[in-house]
Amino acid sequence: MPVALIEVNGVSKRFGTVEAVSNLSVELSPGSIGLVGPNGSGKTTLIRLLLGLLSPDSGNLSVLGCDPQRDPLGVRGQVGYMPEHDCLSPDLSGIGFVAHMGRVSGLPKEVAISRAHDVLEFVGLAEERYRKIREYSVGMRQRVKLAQAIVHDPPLCFLDEPTAGLDPSGREEMLELLRALGRLPNHSFVLSTHLLHDADGLCDQVLMLDAGHCIASGPVRELIASHEGESVIRIQGDTDRFLASLLQHGLTPKPMDREIRVELAPGTTRAVFESAAEAGVQVRYLGRSVATIEGLFLARVELPVPEDPT
């Protein structure tokens, strides 16, 4: 029986009249955990509670077997935190900053310096480590932020929007880094992100919050298994004619975004190609609908603006 990474039992936290976290109970095992939810869902409050920066009004928490309320420093010594916002001292070099944060986390000076070199190499900043942080690009700053979070080799990291502001290649590189981090044994992370697609490729567990409540938690595979069944078609050509054709073949297509979803009994894909041939369109993609964290999330959260009626 593996020890739970994070345990939350009946935790509530209220600010004035707002209940930021409401009787929340979850248990997460070591691994890569996606923490997702809209603004105001309680993600931030939960991270603060887990870091021991806030005390819950009721309930109790455990992080790596420590109680953050009773032993906040014990918990914070074992976790790393990568904030969303800029947090780097521009007057230091990359190596100086990361080594300093290592010492602040409790590493002896020599160990902190050697670890700082290692983690800066890990995040791909080996060449730029002696340059001042004020000269760094957005992507380099994100890497330094990650490096300082892992300099003391914590078994758990909280990563807040690590891909924010990165361009496509920068984002892909950051995700690749996080994948590499997740592959290391005994290195878990909690990834808080608005880009659910990123969480899809990265996380094996997910915790979804909405208005302080948990709306889903657990292994991604188990959660999204219940969402299968449909097929997805993407075509190039006249969508309306193709839809009409599908209807004639007795199918009930649902156009969504830029794809078409349709229930297909096994072995009946032929009808799709027949419709395409009749409508003169190209079938660019045909496959089972892949359930995603994003799909699950949007299915369980109420949208403030109604989706289009199409």
């Binding site: 072995g267 894909t269 032929r270 190609f273 395409a276 190209q282 079938v283 993609y285 045909l286």
Partner: peptide
Amino acid sequence: FYGALPGLVVREGLDIRAVGSADDNLD
């Protein structure tokens, strides 16, 4: 290829369950 595929499937009676390309996206 994609232009010819529906016709081929219908004419030759192929049973294609899924088709797609990892190259055909913006990424």
